[in-house]
Write a protein that binds this DNA or RNA. Structure first.
Length: 478
DNA sequence: TTTTGAGTTGTTCGA
DNA sequence: GTCGAACAACTCAAA
């Protein structure tokens, strides 16, 4: 009898460069399975669930082209895997490792339990370029500064061999029972995400075409364009990467090839800003692994004593994009309307919440977690702690962004603000980032009535900055 | 052990 | 408008 293998999909919703699939298909019938489970202390946010819903549909469609299909289950993963083993008589289970503290822990439990039951378990690594526990500084401790971390990574040999999907594989004579996608209830109940398919193409095919598009149109201009939120200068691969619709190795390889074609040396393209961004993703997982409390606690303990000034009205204004600062409001509305926000604007809105409004960074992190289609525990944590100044790169005094300056610098012609804050669209460029300073006649001409059509600023930045500086000075050293 | 240089993406002030 | 220095201050990483 031919071997029978369960291929357990999680954050690797693709067929290409999927070592677990290659192993599962080796001389074996393949049973692809996805198990929806909500046991984690960071249950998936609403926007990510929307993405997952569509990604699973896409994965099932790809599998069906191979005469296969995706078996959907929900509940405790170990129980479900046991049930499927019983139902199908499979003897092997293959999966790719996850790297959140919860994911690693759960996978270890599952792996041990299954091995104890004499199942044949194969676990692979391909979510990251480097295992978080292999990179160490000269004292053998984890890095807390990005630059030496990434330098140490690049000095390592990168195993960049991708594997390709088996051209065909066999299916079992009978499929185990599967839920319908609707049974997982992943889509939001409100009609919040209805238009998102206009913005995004979840799934492996969408991921690959986005990568191609990025390399052809934006990679070589990344340094100049990545900071401009009105321009498609970034990769927009984050959600695809998070769900493993494309592997980071595949991205690395593709850029390698494109650079080679232009005769750009490895030493050069490996130092490019975009590759460095991949490095930040590695660093985020490095930190999350070594400091698993950081999704809710500051890496720098001194910040435990920081005096926040919780204010529900301000939090709501920030969430809804009604702070009176156009660049902040544009970002928050882009987030709400598309499930995504440009990276530059993530920094601006985060700095504003934490420094200008003195709201706890954890509150912002939770909001992003729920509303971003690319929500990733490692990157979200790193980003918020960086903005708050309590993380791996503590320069809190230097990181109080001026929302007007940032707007004028990175959205000079106001295109981004006009798109997401249309009530200001008729304001001339000079005033687009500071409508409260515009002369009455200009405001009237633009058809805006401050307070009714668009709020006045909920704080004065110059004062808020001083207050934040004072609060930062008061932090007691740990 | 001590010292030294440096740290993703800033802002403000004064010349 | 542009430029460089100062801001305020600490910890990390390596020599």
């Amino acid at each position: 009898m031919k071997r029978r293998s369960i291929l357990w999909f999680r954050e690797d919703l693709r067929l290409d460069d999927n070592p677990a699939l290659v192993e599962a298909a080796k001389d074996s019938e393949v049973i692809p399975v996805f198990i929806w489970s909500e046991g984690s202390n960071w249950p998936m946010g609403a926007a990510s669930r929307w993405w997952l819903h569509h990604s699973l549909l896409s994965l099932d469609a790809s599998l069906r082209l191979h005469g296969s299909r995706l078996i959907l289950r929900k509940g405790n993963p170990l129980d479900e895997l046991h049930a499927i083993l019983r139902e199908t008589g499979a003897q092997r289970i293959c999966f790719n490792r996850r790297y959140t503290p919860f994911g690693l822990q759960q996978d270890a439990k599952v792996e041990n339990a299954l091995k104890n039951d004499r199942s044949d378990v194969h676990v692979f690594s391909n979510y990251l370029l480097f295992e978080p526990w292999t990179i160490k500084n000269k004292s053998g401790a984890p890095f807390r500064v990005f630059t030496p971390f990434w330098k140490a990574c690049l000095a390592e040999h990168i195993h960049q061999r991708s594997c390709i999907a088996p051209s065909e594989w066999t299916s079992p004579p009978l499929w185990p029972k599967s839920l319908a996608i609707e049974d997982l209830a992943l889509l939001p109940k409100l009609n919040w995400a209805n238009r998102w398919l206009e913005f995004w193409s979840p799934g492996e095919r969408g991921a690959q075409s986005q990568l191609k598009h990025f390399i052809e149109n934006a990679f070589f201009q990344y340094d100049q364009a990545r900071d401009l939120p009105s321009v498609q200068g970034t990769s927009r691969l984050s959600a695809h990467l998070h769900f493993g619709e494309i592997s980071v190795r595949k991205i690395w390889d593709s850029i390698h090839q494109a650079a080679e074609k232009k005769q750009i040396a490895p030493a050069t393209w490996q130092k490019s800003q975009f590759i460095t961004e991949l490095g930040w993703r590695e660093f985020a997982y490095h930190l999350l692994h070594h400091f698993p409390e950081t999704p809710h606690s500051p890496l720098k303990p001194a910040f435990d004593s920081f005096q926040w000034n919780e204010n529900k009205d301000w939090q709501t204004a920030w969430q809804k994009g009604k702070t009176g600062f156009p660049i902040v409001d544009a970002g928050m509305r882009e987030l709400w309307q598309t499930g995504w926000m440009h990276n530059r604007v993530r920094m601006i809105t985060a700095s504003f919440l934490v420094k200008d409004l003195l709201q706890p960074w954890q509150m912002g992190a939770r909001w992003f977690w729920d509303t971003l289609v690319d929500a990733d525990l490692a990157s979200n944590t790193l980003g918020w702690q960086w903005s708050a100044g309590c993380g791996a790169d503590a320069q809190p005094f230097f990181r109080i962004f001026n929302p007007v300056l940032q707007g004028e610098k990175f959205d000079a012609d106001g295109t981004y603000v006009r798109k997401w804050v249309p009530e200001l669209s008729k304001l001339p460029n000079v005033w687009i980032h500071k409508p409260w300073k515009a002369p009455d006649a200009v405001i009237q001409n633009a058809g805006v009535e401050l307070e009714n059509d668009y709020p006045r600023p909920i704080v004065r930045h110059e004062i808020a900055r001083e207050v934040a500086m004072e609060a930062l000075r008061k932090i007691k050293p740990a």
